[in-house]
Design a protein around this nucleic acid. Structure first.
Lengths: 214, 214, 214, 214
DNA sequence: TATGAATGAGTATTCATTCAT
DNA sequence: TATGAATGAATACTCATTCAT
């Protein structure tokens, strides 16, 4: 099945000294840059080392192979995006349900846009991204953040949604936003699209609350 | 930007004799099999030749490189899927708008499922899939098919949709169906999800016809 | 236990065309030369390729790794030595038991001397020599040759030897000859040593025939 | 000629303080363990340091390179074996010639058995063992021990043996015992073999004393 | 035209050794 | 003195591609 290789995606050695941490960080940054500029096929261990200004030996001191470097890039990206989402949601804590929803969607879109190059490569070229724990858990984490936000508004009732409806809504919203950020349709008004998406989502949720079945 | 290599994705020589056509076909089938079984990284020209029962020299007789083989696989896949969609829609020609819609969605889902392994590899591992003309044009072609079908029903009014709305609806539906087919959520009732998706789509289209603005 | 790695010591592809056979042969000869000149640690795949006047790719076309090259060298060496022993014994077919014995011993010594450099490296540096089938079976084959020769003389009676005695005699003779050939004691008269060795062996065999127990 | 590299096999710094001695000892023990478990190819300086619980820097404080560690292991092994031989012979001081001989042989066999793993790796994998002074001198030392023992018995006459005979006897006995200890023939009665070996040797020596020529 | 032997640049990875702290 | 992070030359091996037969 699709050549599911099992790669060792963990650190070989966790850096403790400050110097070592700097080295590992340089490697991750270099990997990210190369992924963006050259794609996954362009990422070679020696190139990473060179770009990081570090010897190839140091790279292998901390990473068991290049897959682990990519995994580290992905993990860091997820962490950054989730942190940004969290702080974005924090800034919108007192909003009512509808503007909160809009805020959530817009934030996710903006944050995805900011990382669209790296996201594109990781999601569409790296065969094992979904084996990276942080990536595998991102959807759930995003959903958790949304729930935490929603629970602070009065209209928080979508607990009534079936698991299927929940999946559909989040999957569609997420996919639509990601497509928009990573492969923006040329010549269209993105803001209008996001606007409409928001409306649809809210409408959908209200319906679910009020007892759906169109 | 993402290492946008320019590959030669075309045939080197268009096969005319029956024997040559058989050779080319064997190469494409072998490539597809290997992509499914080993992933894109597992596809090597020599392996393709061996699997196809053809000499490596013959492979290079027709293809300028391995990217062109993958492109041929993708092109053939798109053609097969579109043909299947077309014949599925043909079988549903006399339906009313709503069941026609449902049929379109279900057909797309089923056809995607049937090819989910190859689709997954092509979409999530091959860096240049979207440079393959057939792939780049597939969304438009699918939409054209939908339109052709819709134009035969009375309720055909979504010409009034803005290009943004159109994009949003097709993008969301497509993305949702693809996710469902390629990465089915474990433990959920897929039919129910598709059902709900269909309802929402129809509802949105009706709203658009009736003058939206929730 | 001594890091018993399991290496693939077989050919990857058996050469059929004459050109391919020449390539494989060049590789084996080059490996043997390098083993003699630089020792096992000095044998690197690229060096073998260069010395053989062949590209590194061709080396890997036929051998799965450098261990297999060394195994091929060892196999060929054993074959050559056994063939030489056989033809040496053939030349001594009509001899009586005692001179036949002497001939057998002297032949083995000479043949070992002729290959002493390669033997030294293979036996004392290559961790997996005894996993090479030809090497593992050499002792038995040498013994078989000795028996075939002995069976043509009247004095052929050592069938009465216990398996332990047999082992001891062959092991001691073999080891002594090998030491003599590979690490000749400086300043001693080798011929005298071989002479004495022969006498002792014959004497022991006679004793065994006559009902030993000193 | 067999890639005769010249290695620096000596200590870089002779440890004087107790702590330093402990460090050096830990390094030697670790090296010995790794040699036994992983073979010579598995011995790497970093692994030795780790196993010894010492930093790689400290390893290089005392040893100029990994060859010197292996040489130290070999030296220590020889010392241990010779010491054990000596004490074994001491325990047999009052024996007559024949049982003394038997004792000498059995002791050597047992002591070789006890170290067979390390011996195997050192003798059959390490290219430079015979450049280690202790190893090069071991045969002579063993012989000296034998002589010292023999000189205390009445039957001590083999001074009459030619240097060639002496070489042959010791070489054969030694080689046979080593083979027995390192590569025991499966399914044979080892004690019986040693018994017979002893008898032969004694008989041989008596003959030499009495004026040989079978 | 078809074959498959041959090529060799390129890549991942190891490991002895150094040296700043 | 002890540490262990860092080094980088060296090595095994792959695989897209060519070309003589």
């Amino acid at each position: 099945m699709s050549g599911k290789q099992v790669y060792d995606l963990n650190y070989k050695k966790v850096p403790k000294q400050a110097r070592a941490k700097a080295t590992v960080n340089a490697i991750i940054q270099a990997s990210a840059q190369i992924l963006v500029e050259e794609g996954y096929a362009g990422l070679t261990t020696n190139r990473v080392a060179e770009r990081a200004g570090v010897s190839i030996g140091s790279v292998y001191e901390y990473f068991p192979g290049k897959e682990a470097m990519v995994a580290a890039v992905a993990t860091q990206l997820v962490e950054v995006m989730l942190a940004e989402m969290q702080s974005a949601l924090l800034r919108a804590e007192r909003l009512a349900f509808e503007p909160a929803m809009r805020h959530w969607i817009e934030s996710l879109y903006k944050i995805s846009c900011a990382q669209h190059q790296l996201l594109k490569v990781l999601l569409f070229q790296v065969p094992f991204v979904h084996q990276v724990p942080a990536v595998a858990g991102m959807r759930a984490e995003l959903f958790r953040l949304a729930l935490v936000g929603a629970s602070k508004t009065r209209e928080y009732h979508f607990i009534h949604l079936s698991r299927e409806s929940l999946y559909l809504i989040t999957s569609m919203t997420g996919a639509a936003l990601l497509q928009l950020a990573l492969m923006p349709p040329p010549g269209l008004d993105i803001d209008a699209i996001i606007d409409e998406l928001t409306q649809k989502m809210i409408q959908w949720l209200y319906q679910a609350r009020d007892g759906d079945k169109h």
